[in-house]
Design a protein around this nucleic acid. Structure first.
Length: 612
DNA sequence: ATAGGGTTAG
């Protein structure tokens, strides 16, 4: 064996005399740092770091390098980078702090490390520190600083980073701009994202996808669809991520025809075997109202993971088929796929929609007992909802008070919803103030309370709540209903007359109201908040957005075909009654998706069994 | 060395 220590000129030659494993052994096993430190030791250490593939080896090497007193920037940079690659950002930070003058490269590695593991605050802290030290962030720094702003939804810091990257001359880098665009989109500022997008001279698939996904996640569903088509028209090949976003938007719109086209596109482009895409297609079918197509795809998908199984459970849930959800859950356990807390959220909400109180309770108990999953806020929320809807109001209140996490407005809101169903004004009054404290600008809770008063003919209080809403300036969301026809999604608001077929639509509703009343339809005027005459209240109800969309469907679609409508809010009680009767009069299946679930109306009945 | 991502209560 030749000596491992030699002259610099012999270095390469000497190193090559050893096999890789031998090199490693010699470096690791040499017990004390008595040998002289020279270039060779450094080179060997560096070589071993290069080949290091496990955290254990890295720790040993790190200790060795430290005990040898090898305080070279290049080695410690490698050590830090390796710790980041093994997801040990804090260990990397330790190595980083050891250096008096870490390079920008190493700063970037750490900023990236914190950002990609969700430690956004720490990452931004380092970014600030880097600038205080007089180091200039570069095109590798900004994407991660922006990712942190996006992750924190912090538009103010995001804007500062934007200014800074312009000053640093990085505003033309494609990675930086894509991250900038994404930051604005994730901070719900789609207009600013669009400005960034429009200014780009070169747009790759990632930039297009950031814009598409930004639109999709901000509810700009039509824009998502348009941009997906524009991207393909401009010659950019879509990939799995852009397809995921467009499927999300398509599901939000409830555009089944377009969705079927997208499914065939997925098959054509070879993404059908991608479990993420397959799950998204399934979810799209579910949200477009076709449980059958969702189930068929589910059965045809091999290698289902926990997300895919949970999605199928959720599908049956929002269509009100709780027992099927439980069947799928049992199949999942038989397939040896481990459920997570989302799976339980899906099951519990499914039980809640179907009124399966005992089964839901059992699942909730078994979460921790049999699966070692401690319930999270969502799981408690479902459980409170299940108890509330089932009429166990005091049990629900007790659970809220005893759960280890602080209840938010929406959990109390479930209980308030149950107060409306069961006419419990005392409890409603008792919890309303707390809800308004937690979320003072939510129009829905005010409307709910007002409806509870209205049901008891307490008109003075109805008026008081109405004034409260005006005073607080609650964020009223306009009710919208969508219906797809001939590949176009038609949109209707309350008393909307902007549609070209408005006259026909209003005429049809006016014609229908007589036969509806003969079949027992009584307008539920306590769903009208305004202080107006009875007759006007009836009229206000008749032109609710969901009724307009259904009338449009009746006019334009062939007899016997189902009508599918998507509503952005919860379906109103009067519409629910009216649509049941309309389904009988016109002999059509009418499928309405509201904010929370599906209602399949047929021959005077609804699949929810009026339990919603 | 870098950006975009499927299921989740009300």
């Amino acid at each position: 064996m030749r000596p491992i220590f030699g002259l610099r000129t012999n270095l390469v030659l000497n190193i090559h005399c050893f096999s890789n494993s031998k090199l490693q052994r010699i470096f690791i096993t040499s017990s004390s740092p008595k040998q002289p430190i020279n270039d060779v030791t450094l080179l060997i250490a560096s070589d071993e770091l290069q080949r290091c593939t496990s955290l254990t080896t890295l720790r040993k090497l790190h200790a060795k390098i430290f005990s040898y007193g090898l305080y070279h920037t290049s080695l410690w940079t490698k050590i830090a980078a390796l710790y980041v690659s093994f997801e040990r950002v804090d260990a990397a930070k330790f190595a980083f702090e050891f250096l008096s003058n870490p390079s920008s490269y190493l700063w970037n590695i750490l900023i990236r490390g914190y950002a990609t593991h969700g430690f956004f605050g720490q990452s931004l802290g380092l970014y600030r520190e880097m600038m205080q030290k007089g180091l200039k962030p570069d095109k590798f720094t900004f994407p991660f600083a922006l990712k942190c702003c996006a992750g924190l939804s912090d538009l103010n810091v995001g804007r500062l980073v934007h200014q800074h990257l312009v000053c640093c001359g990085c505003s033309h880098d494609v990675f930086v701009t894509a991250a900038l665009l994404d930051m604005y989109a994730k901070c719900s500022h789609t207009e600013a994202a669009r400005l960034v997008f429009d200014k780009m001279s070169v747009r790759d698939v990632v930039c297009w996808t950031s814009m598409i996904s930004g639109y999709a996640h901000n509810g700009c569903n039509s824009e998502t669809m348009v941009f997906f088509d524009l991207m393909r028209a401009s010659g950019v090949q879509s990939n799995r991520v852009s397809i995921l976003s467009v499927l999300l938007a398509c599901g939000n719109l409830g555009a089944l025809r377009k969705g079927e086209w997208l499914h065939s596109y997925v098959i054509q482009t070879g993404f059908e075997h991608d479990i993420l895409v397959a799950t998204a297609v399934m979810d799209m079918y579910t949200k477009c109202g076709s449980l059958e197509l969702a189930r068929r795809l589910f059965d045809d998908t091999p290698g289902k993971d926990v997300v895919c199984w949970s999605a199928m459970i959720a599908s049956y849930g929002i269509h009100g088929q709780g027992r099927k959800s439980l069947d799928v859950f049992n199949d999942m356990l038989r397939a040896k796929v481990k459920p997570n807390h989302v799976t339980f959220t899906c099951i519990l909400s499914s039980c809640s929609h179907s009124g399966l109180l005992e089964q839901g309770k059992k699942c909730f108990e078994s979460m921790a007992k049999d699966f070692g999953i401690s319930p999270q806020l969502n799981n408690y929320a479902c459980m409170v909802d299940l108890l509330s809807r089932s009429g166990q109001l005091s049990e629900a209140e007790e659970l809220i008070q005893n759960m280890p996490v602080e209840a938010d407005a929406s959990i109390w809101g479930s209980l308030l919803g149950a107060c409306r169903i069961y006419g419990n004004l005392d409890l409603a009054e008792r919890i309303a103030d707390r809800i308004f404290e937690l979320d003072p600008f939510h129009a829905g809770y005010h409307v709910l309370l007002s409806n509870i008063y209205a049901a008891k003919s307490r008109w003075k209080e109805v008026e008081r709540v109405r004034r409260m809403m005006v005073r607080r300036g609650t964020n009223k969301v306009q009710g919208l209903s969508l219906i797809e026809f001939n590949n176009v999604v038609h949109k209707f608001g309350v008393r909307d007359r902007s549609h070209p077929q408005s006259n026909k639509i209003y005429d049809l509703l006016d014609e229908l109201v007589g036969p509806m009343k003969r079949l027992g339809y009584v307008p539920l005027i306590d769903f009208v908040l305004h202080d107006i005459e009875e007759e006007a209240k009836e009229e206000a109800l008749l032109y609710h957005s969901e009724k307009l969309a259904i009338a449009f469907g009746l006019i334009n679609t062939p007899p016997g075909t189902p009508i599918r409508v998507t509503k952005n809010l919860r379906i109103c009680g009067d519409c629910h009654n009216a649509i049941k009767i309309i389904s009988r009069i016109v002999n059509r299946i009418i499928i309405v998706r509201d904010m929370y679930r599906f209602h399949h109306f047929e021959d005077g009945h609804c699949s929810c069994g009026d339990y919603w």
